[in-house]
């Protein structure tokens, strides 16, 4: 794997924007590094990528990356990404959503983009809480865990993003964590290459709010928690549900090959004869 420690600096808006706003030890920086290294591995140029985010701690990510970037309204990252993909199908479109941004406020866009199966790579940063707004419980906060709006423990049941994406019809779902930075990089690489709606759920740590309220310790302790509680998908098949109770499964969980939306859309334009501008190259060939 051709990774170098300096390759990320080519993709960063380093002189203006750094150091970044995230808390010391926040896993979003690790996820951003894995994403940029995956891009460098695939030798994707800066101008070929559109990176879209919503609001939240994850929403700051495109500010630091030197691609075509959009920082959009809350929850609407995938909606904007759909528009960009349909108008510019050659771009690689990456949507960065958080757990609240992608599954609660933008939950509708998430399932319908999966249903359309449009070619967007979605990085779902799951830190189990609304970090930026002060620690309210989110759709992925586990039952019984504490948040500022759940001082006696959360009563609700959390979403499983894997079942949601699979049920809605996504083509690819993978999960990893910030401890497994190299695995995360490999999975993002697979998701970028996969046609159709592909989701990579990156488990991240919010030690400032989630860790403090639930007494899970510092950034290092939370990252080590991911190390102890991750089970690879191949090993998880051999284990009983009781053994997997407080664990989370990593690796490629779901892969499918349904037809992709923007390609079908382009085919429809061709079928209806709606593309007149492409006659020019043919005329040049005749002159030569």
């Amino acid at each position: 794997m051709a990774v170098a420690s300096t390759v990320v600096y080519e993709y960063l808006r380093g002189k203006k924007k750094f150091p970044h706003v995230w808390c010391p030890g926040c896993g979003i920086g690790i996820i951003m590094g894995a994403l940029l290294r995956a891009m460098a591995d695939l030798e994707i140029k800066k101008g070929d990528v559109a990176m879209i985010s919503g609001i939240g701690c994850t929403g700051r990510m495109p500010v630091y990356c030197d691609f075509h970037t959009l920082h959009t309204t809350h929850g609407r990252a995938i909606a904007f990404a759909t528009g960009i993909k349909l108008s510019k199908p050659d771009l690689k479109v990456v949507a960065i959503v958080g757990d609240g941004d992608g599954l609660a406020i933008g939950g509708n866009h998430f399932i319908h983009a999966a249903r359309r199966n449009i070619d967007i790579t979605t990085i779902l940063v799951n830190n189990k809480i609304y970090g930026m707004t002060g620690g309210q419980y989110s759709p992925t906060t586990p039952t019984g865990k504490f948040a500022t709006t759940a001082p006696y423990g959360n009563l609700e049941h959390p979403f499983d993003a894997y079942l949601l994406a699979k049920g809605a019809g996504a083509n690819f779902f993978a999960r990893s964590s910030v401890y497994h930075a190299t695995q995360l990089q490999v999975l993002i690489k697979k998701a970028l290459l996969k046609k159709g709606f592909s989701v990579v759920e990156a488990m991240s740590n919010c030690h400032t709010l989630y860790g403090r309220l639930n007494k899970e310790g510092s950034a290092v302790q939370m990252i080590n928690w991911f190390k102890d509680h991750a089970v690879n998908v191949n090993i998880a098949k051999k284990k009983t549900p009781e053994e997997l109770e407080d664990k989370f499964i990593t690796g490629v969980l779901w892969e499918d090959n349904r037809p992709e939306y923007s390609e079908q859309y382009e085919a429809l334009i061709d079928r209806l004869g709606g593309r007149k501008k492409e006659e020019k190259p043919e005329a040049e060939v005749v002159k030569q």
Binding site: A4, S5, T6, V8, Y9, L12, G14, F18, P19, H20, W22, P24, G25, C26, G27, I28, G29, I30, G33, A34, V178, Y179, A181, T182, I223
Partner: peptide, 11 residues
Amino acid sequence: WLHCPDFAIKS
């Protein structure tokens, strides 16, 4: 440097 969230380490 793979786990540095601040891109502050290089080899």
